[in-house]
């Protein structure tokens, strides 16, 4: 039991609740369609226009392509600032150092 200040969190209760919910799911599933037949075409996932479903694997670089494409404006400057040049690493470090210095010395630390 974990007291979080404004509530509590108990993983054991959570697992018990999950188990109860799973039981309900199983009951509903048991009352499912009677015309379902194993081992027929019904079981296979339907993907339109994809004849060979079995051997397909989406490569990592293609995952979230849409997300990255939509946020191009955010990503381009971010990726460009990761130059991999040691001089830029130290410049960022010194920049933050100066900024922290201005804040602490300027605002009465």
């Amino acid at each position: 039991m974990l007291d979080t200040g404004s509530g509590f969190w108990s993983p054991l209760w959570w697992i018990a609740a999950l188990g109860a919910a799973g039981l309900v799911v199983l009951i509903i599933r048991a009352r499912g369609r009677s015309d379902y037949q194993k081992g027929t075409e019904q079981v296979k996932p339907f993907l339109s226009g994809q004849p060979e479903v079995e051997k397909q694997h989406v490569r990592a670089s293609n995952v979230y392509w849409g997300f990255l494409e939509a946020l191009k404006g955010y990503y381009r400057p971010l990726v460009q600032s990761h130059t991999g040049l040691i001089n830029d690493y130290t410049t960022w470090f010194l920049g933050v150092l100066v900024l922290v210095g201005v804040l602490i010395l300027g605002m009465g630390g």
Binding site: G95, V96, V100, I104, L105, G109
Partner: peptide, 28 residues
């Protein structure tokens, strides 16, 4: 908390934050 102490604080905060990998000093 004289000026020298503040300078020491600035140096310590920035350097140790860099060593723990805080953005924008995370590139290493």
């Amino acid at each position: 908390l004289t000026t020298a102490d503040k300078l020491a604080l600035v140096l310590l905060v920035a350097s140790l934050a860099m060593k723990s990998g805080a953005v924008p000093m995370h590139m290493w």
